[in-house]
Design a protein around this nucleic acid. Structure first.
Length: 663
DNA sequence: TGGACACTTCTTTTT
DNA sequence: GAAGTGTCCA
């Protein structure tokens, strides 16, 4: 096999491993993708039926890239059909289409995204932050807790209330045949778990399973994988425990640390780094060695020495931005390709100053992952129209679009119908009643609206854009040119996918992200999270300050991994920057340089003394001398004082954080 | 009904 | 500082 010659010995060992569980611990820049795509190509070149392989990823982009690379290695060989490479969620979607009837649900379900989820939650309850609720619900679902069980476990009124909201939320999904992102995996697992014969069938079908970015898997994904490989244990996962940075989204860093034990796996470490210079890797190695929870590996550069890492210190963020803009200008003047330059930061709020700086110097840049196409208001409106056509009972979508563009249907009218309609959906009620409770004009508008929707619902995906536009003037009604253009772009996407019906189109769409669209042609400005998997010759990381990076109250080891990811994005030239004072949240505050600079060995003789955070967060249990134990409902920072809103068994008090202890 | 104004909040976000 | 939410009034 000629393509094996492209690999080093360790990579080759990994790529030619055939049977049994294997963990490929792949350090940053160690040729991870090359190794697993080669392994896939290798398996297929041995005559293994592509239909017997399954490769799971987290993004469509990764799946597509890997498919292409594997197939290009096999060029000229006769592969009967392409292998299945899919995201976990898309795999769930395909599975549920075939088998959701086994839990008595119809396969014409619609997938909701996190935004929809929050909206639904908001309709159910208004007293707790929807973000907090949706996180909690996700936690419960992923721990297989039913609302009743959550209620039974609840120790205080807040959590009893949450159990209640959870129950209503689940009922809402069932009534409207909706499926959230968690469900795509959960229900898939549930069905496989309850139907042993089916699990056998599926496990026998997918005899060779591979998983990319294993450090980002959560509990359900682990359980699901166990089901999928129950009959063969042929599972090969790739990942880097040191690059696990999605804990806040439910990724369980433990999965990769325990894989060896969980699956009785062989472990192969890829430690030769083909990306960065010694200086950069030394800093990365030094820094990450401060973490306790890790497998332990050291990156060794295949590129040798390069430039020293530069540390920038500035008076404030304006000076910082100016200094970096100047440096970037110089690089470009030296002929550096702008797409080889990137600026990273921990939090989006820092993008502003650097953007200003670049703009002042007339340097074109691209903000990666800023406002997302599918999250734009006008696109969500259009999607709501499509949903309403598929499911006339979708009251959430109905309310979203009933007055877009303006038809003179306001809050009052909606509230009246809401009260009168009982269990009926808006559209049902409007069709079946004379609407005497609202004004004649509004009644006529609504009747017309509903009739029009019914008409539109009979159309195919490629007929819709024209008709929607003619009837509702969705694009035309916007004065904002960007919005109109976005709508036209979306129309274009609908026409392109005329092979699908509306429902299929919506479900495909909900699993798509802008991540898939990242193209690199200009200077890139983005969060560290967005930079994962990318690499640049010249890299700037700004905001290296305590409180920003590491962020206050965050999991320090995950912050450190994040810094590790940031550093290892750089190929030859890394610049880390901090300031003395930063303007944030409408206020200027003095800041100290990040401990990570010291830990990386970049600033000698200094040690930032800071307690490892025993951070108090919303939801934490705390103890007070007099009031006893309570749960934190909210956190309020005023100056350098932090005030906590705490529920002490029903009575809510505001207490300064210094007066309580975390329990 | 919908605009104007006050008040709150502010980490990252592969699906 | 900005965006999102809530409330009031023409």
């Amino acid at each position: 096999m000629k393509f094996l010659d492209e690999l080093n010995d360790v990579q080759k060992e990994a790529a030619t491993h055939i049977d049994g569980a294997l963990l490929i611990l792949a350090g940053a820049g160690s040729g991870k993708t090359k190794t697993i795509t080669t392994r896939l190509a290798y398996l297929l070149s041995l005559g293994i039926d592509p239909a017997n392989t399954l490769t799971l990823t987290f993004t469509n982009k990764a799946a597509n890239e890997m498919r292409e690379r594997a197939l290009s290695l096999l060029e000229g060989q006769n592969i009967p059909h392409p292998p299945l490479l899919s995201t976990f969620h898309k795999f769930g979607l395909m599975f549920l289409k075939l088998y959701i009837h086994l839990i008595n649900r119809d396969n014409n379900f619609v997938i909701i995204d996190s935004d929809d989820q929050r909206k639904i939650i908001k309709q159910i309850s208004s007293d707790l932050p929807p973000n907090f609720i949706s996180k909690e619900i996700s936690k419960y679902k992923n721990s297989f807790l039913t609302p009743d069980e959550v209620y039974a476990l609840a120790t205080d009124s807040v959590y009893k209330n949450l159990a209640h909201i959870y129950e209503k939320y689940q009922n809402y999904l069932l009534e409207n045949n909706l499926v959230d992102f968690d469900d795509l995996l959960l229900l898939t697992y549930k069905i496989l778990n309850e139907n042993d014969d089916l699990a056998d069938e599926i496990s026998d079908k997918y005899q060779y399973i591979m998983v990319d970015e294993y450090q980002d898997t959560n509990e359900i994904q682990l359980l699901l994988l166990k089901r999928l490989c129950k009959n063969h244990n042929n599972i090969c996962v790739v990942g880097d425990d040191d690059q696990s940075i999605y804990g806040f989204r439910g990724a369980n860093h433990k999965n990769i640390l325990d894989f060896e034990k969980d699956f009785n796996a062989k472990v192969i470490k890829l430690e030769i780094n083909y990306r960065s210079t010694n200086q950069i890797l030394n800093a990365a190695n030094n820094l990450i060695s401060f973490n306790k929870n890790r497998y332990g590996k050291k990156l060794i550069s295949a590129r040798g020495d390069g430039k020293d890492i530069e540390i920038l210190r500035n008076y404030n963020e304006i000076a910082e931005a100016e200094m970096i803009a100047k440096k970037i200008r110089d690089l470009i003047n030296q002929g550096v390709d702008p797409k080889e330059i990137a600026v990273l930061y921990r939090i989006n709020a820092l993008s502003r100053s650097i953007e200003d700086g670049l703009r002042n110097y007339g340097i074109p840049y691209k903000l990666v992952g800023g406002m997302k196409f599918y999250e734009r208001e006008e696109i969500k409106d259009l999607i709501s129209y499509l949903r309403l056509l598929v499911n006339p009972h979708d009251d959430y979508s109905f309310k979203r679009v009933v007055n877009k563009p303006r038809r003179g249907i306001g809050k009052a009218t909606i509230a009246k119908i809401e009260e009168a309609k009982g269990d009926k959906s808006f559209i049902e009620y409007i069709k079946e009643n004379d609407l005497s409770i609202i004004s004649k004009k509004a009644a006529k508008t609504l009747k017309d609206f509903v009739n029009t929707l019914e008409l539109l619902s009979k159309m195919s995906l490629d007929e819709l854009p024209e008709n929607l536009e003619e009837i509702f003037e969705l694009s035309k009604s916007y004065k904002d040119e960007d919005k109109a253009r976005n709508i036209e772009e979306f129309y274009g996407m609908m026409r392109e996918r005329s092979d699908l019906n509306i429902r299929e189109f919506l479900n495909e769409l909900s699993l798509e992200t802008d991540q898939d669209k990242i193209t690199m042609d200009m200077i890139n400005v983005m969060t560290i999270h967005a930079s994962k998997g990318l690499e640049f010759d010249h890299l700037f990381v700004i905001g290296m300050e305590e409180g920003f990076f590491p962020l206050n109250d965050a999991d320090i080891e995950e912050e450190r991994r994040l810094a590790y990811v940031a550093i290892t994005r750089a190929r030859k030239d890394l610049t880390l920057s901090y300031v003395e004072s930063r303007y944030i949240h409408g206020k200027r505050s003095p800041v100290n340089k990040s401990r990570f600079l010291t830990e990386a060995g970049l600033i000698k003789g200094e040690r930032v003394e800071l307690k490892e955070s025993s951070a108090i967060k919303t939801g934490s249990l705390v103890k007070h001398k007099v009031f006893g134990t309570g749960r934190v409902l909210g956190i309020n920072k005023a100056g350098n004082k932090t005030k906590l809103k705490i529920d002490f068994g029903g009575s809510v008090r505001e207490i300064l954080s210094d007066f309580v202890e975390k329990v």
